[in-house]
Design a protein around this nucleic acid. Structure first.
Length: 424
RNA sequence: GUGAUCGUAGCUCAUCGGGUAGAGCACCGGAUUGUGGCUCCGGAGGUGGUGGGUUCGAGACCCAUCGGUCACCCCA
């Protein structure tokens, strides 16, 4: 029989790695809750229309990266490629945003792209969305929160904040026209992708990696000259908030985002440590999206971070989740010893529930059991043999310290282990 | 979607067209019949990703396919 395999780009997370995941998720969860964000859980499947309407019909995500298929009744469904659209849908559907609301979510997102470093077809994001606040303090708080996360994780020195304002929809439309007008003169000399984008998504030409295309952009119209007054003011206020909180940033006038719903603030946290996929966290303001999806006009701002990329960065920086080793490992020799061991370990789990205490299962020779005790990393082996079983005692052998082993009554074991744990 | 590169034991890798495909680590057992780590000895573990082709003979060469990796496009 052919070996069954996971779907391409949708890897299993194995026990050797889940500790890091749990550590990271816990850190993020604690932080966002301390800022008043409440968790919301959305389905991973939504109506295809939701994404097409919010992300934009001509974006790469919608045009070629979505997992879309027909439900049994013919409805077109899509595995969510990002979280904001579903979050807005849920918030509108359940009337969560009649007052300002801070929401966060986590879970898998799906995009049908060729896998590479830092890019998978199923990947995990944690996203935050703040609804109902039009002023840039909301943007600033989100950015400050993310900056704090990098500090908490110990990667602050490896990431940089790129910041920009892309203005109102109207300002952007005017700029888009001017840019197309300017670049059309060189159309034949632009790279192929940029020529195509001239028709579909001209703003994305700005961050083209082609040197020659970038040359033509040197004298191109500047987005900031087209910004509406409100966007200019809000951007200045945002920068003042960040300056006051000592959050460093680089204004990048070429920073645009791939999703259509953004306006005013856009930002990305980037690193040079991860190769080609250096964005670990990105977001911006989307004041028109709620209304666009049928809700009452409500401003919004949010971001999402890619957990795999953050874990890669932590790895590159040599930062590891603190690992915990078991306190004790129970070894039972002979039938009476095994029974005494099982009972003794279960009793310990009742009296010392805060500790990691392991039990040898599957018998094995004394020697084999001691090997397992050592391999478990436990501080102490708890040995029940024939003699111990007969006398209601247990022998403690210290596996990490140069201390003689001791034998004591079962009834004193929990107390003794607790004492030992304090000296760890 | 495009390109490059790689698939041999659980893991890291040898073998580079010629006899039953090897090593280290890990695993199991023994030396030490109630004591782990160090050492020594032994054992188990493979349809060489899969399917075709070339050849007297293929793990090795060719093609296809699946998968990994990295990059492009794009994005978290």
């Amino acid at each position: 029989m052919k070996t069954l395999q996971a779907i391409r780009g949708m890897p299993d997370t194995l026990p050797v790695d889940t500790g890091s995941w749990q550590w990271l998720e816990r850190k993020v969860q604690d932080l966002v809750q301390s800022y008043g964000y409440q968790e919301i859980r959305m389905p991973i499947l939504e109506s295809t229309h939701l994404f097409a309407r919010s992300i934009g019909e001509v974006t790469d995500i919608v045009e070629k990266e979505m997992y879309t298929f027909a439900d049994r009744n013919g409805d077109s469904l899509t595995l969510r490629p990002e979280g904001t659209a579903g979050c807005v849908r849920a918030a509108v559907q359940h009337n969560l945003i009649s007052t300002p609301q801070r929401l966060w979510y986590r879970g898998p997102m799906f995009r049908h792209e060729r896998p590479q470093k830092g890019r998978l077809r199923q990947f995990q994001q944690i996203g935050l969305e703040a609804f109902g606040v039009a002023t840039p303090d909301a943007d600033a708080e989100l950015i400050a929160l993310s900056a704090r996360l990098w500090r908490d994780l110990g990667v602050a020195d490896a990431v940089q904040l790129q910041l920009n304002s892309i203005g109102s929809l109207e300002a952007r439309a005017a700029y888009k026209a001017a840019l197309v007008d300017y670049l059309s003169a060189f159309k034949g000399e632009l790279d192929e992708d940029s020529q195509r984008r001239l028709e579909t998504n001209p703003l994305r030409i700005l961050d083209s990696k082609h040197a020659r295309t970038q040359e033509f952009l040197t004298n191109a119209p500047n987005l900031h000259d087209f910004l509406d007054e409100e966007s200019v003011n809000d951007f200045a206020r945002l920068k003042a908030y960040l300056d006051g909180a000592k959050v460093a940033y680089t204004v990048n006038p070429r920073l645009v985002r791939g999703l259509d719903y953004y306006n005013k603030t856009v930002f990305e946290w980037v690193t040079t440590e991860l190769g080609a996929q250096g964005t670990i966290c990105a977001g911006g303001r989307y004041d028109g999206l709620v209304a666009q999806l049928g809700g009452k006009p409500t401003p919004g701002v949010g971001f999402a971070m890619g957990l795999e990329r953050i874990l890669l960065l932590l790895g590159a920086q040599g930062i590891e989740a603190p690992s915990t080793l078991p306190l004790a490992f129970g070894v039972g020799v002979g039938e009476a010893g095994e029974r005494a061991c099982f009972a003794g370990i279960e009793a310990l789990r009742s009296s010392l529930p805060q500790f990691d205490i392991r039990l040898n299962t599957g018998a094995g020779s004394f020697k084999a059991q001691m090997k397992r005790a050592d391999k478990s990393g436990a501080k102490v082996a708890l040995i029940w043999g024939e003699t111990e079983a007969q006398n209601n005692t247990v022998t403690l052998k210290f596996l990490r310290d140069d201390e003689p082993q001791i034998t004591l009554a079962n009834s004193l074991l929990a107390q003794e282990l607790e004492r030992i744990s304090n000296t760890m």
